[in-house]
Amino acid sequence: MALEGLRARRTFWRTTVLSLGLLVLLLYWFPVRNLDLLIPMGVCPSATMVLLRDNFTGVLRLWNRPNVLTCTSWKAPIIWDGTFNPDVAQREARRQNLTIGLTVFAVGRYLEKYLSHFLESAEQYFMVGQRVVYYVFTEQPAAVPRVALGPGRQLRVEPVMRERRWQDVSMARMRTLHEALGGRLGREAHYVLCMDVDQHFSGLFGPEVLADSVAQLHAWHYRRPRWLLPFERDERSAAAIAFGEGDFYYHAAVFGGSVAALRRLTAHCARGLQLDRARGLEARWHDESHLNKFFWLHKPAKVLSPEFCWSRDIGRRAEIRHPRLFWAPKEYAEVRN
């Protein structure tokens, strides 16, 4: 009996060590970030697919992407490559005679590091053939690079105050955008997209993305279950989302909509940031946390798939067929100093 017990213990420990070794090899060859691939995305019900229409492309071809989630629980479309007709969207935008605004904040070293590439790639891919106004918010107006603009495209420089910390720059964005949307920006543009400067366009980014309110699925979190999403959990914060709440985690690098809808969004976020500051709080992901709270309370009319804002650091994913916007390498030590 004693001998059998000894053999059983040896077998147990050998199996345990072998299993741990295999787990280490698995994590080495299959990084933790790729464990997301084991999480199913879900699919849009067929009954919902046939009902969804887009404000610019008409009937959406959601059945072209059967292996990804193409709609939300509130029946808003999630736009993936192959689900829309870009030519129809272009014609509809021209028929409506739209002016589309694109805002970007280029403060401190972010201006010299990223702005030129951002604008040059936008001229190549962003709303091609449409009337566009770029609004560059910066404390260095004289340093904004001269970029050759196509017909019907303008660039406006909007001076802002320099903030002491990069977090304050991020959090002041909502207040600044709200004020601008109540002024010239709001008078000139019909739809506005707000983007981070540390990225560049890599594919056509057209009117198919436009809607009354537009949210961007975060490339690092779009496959993860709700309980793993990095919502603000401090219940004292105006950005707090309780466990069990929330739909998706949205990226503040891209959001947009009509002027009226964006005024409501930026007012909500600016007010929440101000309340938190008065309480001595700072949400985990700053203005992005408040953006996610807004979209939990007020569902976006259209959601963009991660193809519209992708990070090469994630690696290749079968569902990411045609990235439209790439994150630039994050060199925080250089640009946030």
Results as ranks from 00 to 15, higher is better:
10 R>Y: 09
50 V>E: 15
291 L>I: 01
288 E>D: 05
277 R>L: 08
303 V>E: 14
222 Y>E: 03
206 G>N: 00
232 E>Y: 03
220 W>K: 04
104 V>A: 01
185 L>S: 02
192 V>H: 00
110 Y>L: 04
148 A>Q: 14
78 I>R: 11
217 L>G: 06
225 P>K: 12
171 M>A: 13
137 F>T: 05
218 H>E: 13
80 W>C: 07
177 L>P: 06
164 R>S: 11
287 D>S: 01
203 G>R: 07
332 Y>E: 03
304 L>K: 04
24 V>A: 09
22 L>P: 00
167 Q>W: 11
307 E>Q: 02
81 D>C: 12
312 R>H: 10
230 P>W: 02
99 T>M: 06
293 K>C: 09
320 I>H: 08
331 E>H: 06
138 T>L: 07
226 R>D: 10
197 V>Q: 01
235 E>I: 07
250 Y>C: 00
145 P>W: 08
280 G>P: 05
46 S>E: 15
10 R>I: 10
21 G>P: 11
272 G>R: 03
299 K>L: 13
149 L>N: 10
66 P>F: 08
11 T>A: 15
20 L>T: 07
229 L>D: 06
157 V>I: 15
273 L>P: 00
83 T>L: 07
167 Q>S: 14
325 L>Q: 00
285 W>Y: 15
162 R>N: 14
21 G>S: 09
67 N>Q: 15
182 G>I: 07
246 G>Q: 02
44 C>E: 14
320 I>Y: 06
19 S>H: 04
206 G>V: 04
59 V>R: 10
221 H>N: 08
109 R>D: 05
26 L>T: 08
229 L>P: 10
333 A>T: 09
293 K>V: 00
206 G>E: 05
